[in-house]
Amino acid sequence: MAARAQAGDREAYGALVMRYAAQARRVARAILGNPEDADDAAQDGFLAALRHIGRYDPDRPFGPWLVRIVANAAADRRRRRKVRRTEELSPLAATAVPGPSEVTDRRALRAALESALVDLPERQRIAVVLFDVEGYSHAEIAGMLGVPEGTVRSDVFHARRALREPLAAWRTWKERDS
């Protein structure tokens, strides 16, 4: 598919967009927080990938190549707009202060998790999303981010530790409640 797209087949590229849209949007959202900015960045990434598809090596998987471009597009957008941390929070996360009664709500857990994600350093955020959500290996993520594999392992480890807190609190409450 990617090789066909490289040969100029727009329909093949369209199929790639459909296949990788969700992943690209998630990665961009992990970097930018704001869903609208994330979609703009993901779109920038897809268009940049199309412009530079001549540089893509068809012997290698398309996903990591695309994710790297999308991540760069998101980081560029973040730098350009100088997005403030408070703007990164989605309305849901910004208003969510998990109280004892709200913790039962799965939406509140989502909000708490989203908030914890936003609090992470950018690289840890990307690393944990690429590893635990997208299923890339440490080595693949290291290649995408241009950092040593050990750094990726460390980032995933620290990110997990921070993200498991709201998850553990929610689980504890559920056990106590039942």
């Binding site: 459909m18 869903p35 959500v133 997990r160």
Partner: peptide, 19 residues
């Protein structure tokens, strides 16, 4: 478990519009 929760948090619902 964490992956599934993050997937839920990060996955947008309107993929078709974006595509």
């Amino acid at each position: 478990e964490l992956g599934a929760m993050l997937l839920e948090v990060l996955t947008p619902t309107d993929d078709a519009v974006f595509v």
